[in-house]
């Protein structure tokens, strides 16, 4: 398989931007271990059972809550669709009842963190992202600047944003420009 390259390699320039002082926002990128979409039909959970077992997952999970194991992170993005980050090659689980698609080249992970990370998100999306409403382990599918993204709350002030690779640079620019007033630190890698 071709090596997965970062679409943000030209954007990830380490440094402090915006007002001097403590940065309210930190932005960086992360190379995905491998991203797979598992999709099926009415018997999706049964069809996905062996793939789930290999990933250490017992169920397809619930909407809006991520499942994490030592080797995978899974997001139930639709009734019969699961997005899975894993370094394991899931292609072997492809069958008539389960469509397995390698999306490793199709998404880029932007890491947003810092004490003002939720303030920044609330400027960009019309969803309640307060700590009570958007808890650790939860995820949202929404649009930032009209680009469909998945936002995963990894920790209280740490978020990962999966952006389509072809829109990664413009997504990054929207985040960066909105982050500047809070004081911004960019790290070339997470």
């Amino acid at each position: 398989m071709a090596e997965v390259l970062s679409a943000l390699s030209k954007k990830l320039v380490s440094g402090h931007y915006g007002p001097a002082g403590d940065a309210g926002i930190r932005l960086s990128g992360r190379r995905l271990r491998g991203l797979w979409q598992l999709a099926g039909w009415a018997n999706f959970e049964t069809a996905a059972a062996s793939a789930l077992e290999a990933l250490g997952l017992s169920t397809i999970g619930t909407f809006q809550s991520a499942q994490a194991t030592q080797i995978a992170c899974a997001w139930r993005i639709a009734p019969d669709k699961l997005l899975v980050e894993s370094a394991h090659d899931l292609g072997a689980f492809n069958s008539q009842d389960l469509a397995v698609l390698n999306l490793s080249h199709a998404r880029e992970a932007i890491i947003l963190s810092g004490p003002a990370a939720r303030d920044l998100l609330s400027q960009l999306i019309a969803i309640d992202v307060s700590p009570a409403a958007f808890r650790r382990g939860a995820f949202l599918q929404t649009g930032i600047h009209h680009v469909g993204v998945l936002i995963h709350c990894v920790e209280e002030t740490d978020f990962e944003i999966l952006v389509p690779t072809t829109w990664a640079e413009s997504g990054w620019e929207v985040l960066l420009e909105n982050a500047l007033p809070f004081g911004l630190e960019v790290h070339s890698n997470a």
């Binding site: 949202l140 599918q141 649009g143």
Partner: peptide, 12 residues
Amino acid sequence: CPVCGLRNETEF
């Protein structure tokens, strides 16, 4: 939305 929860019309 039954999958995503309460959302603004602009997403639809």
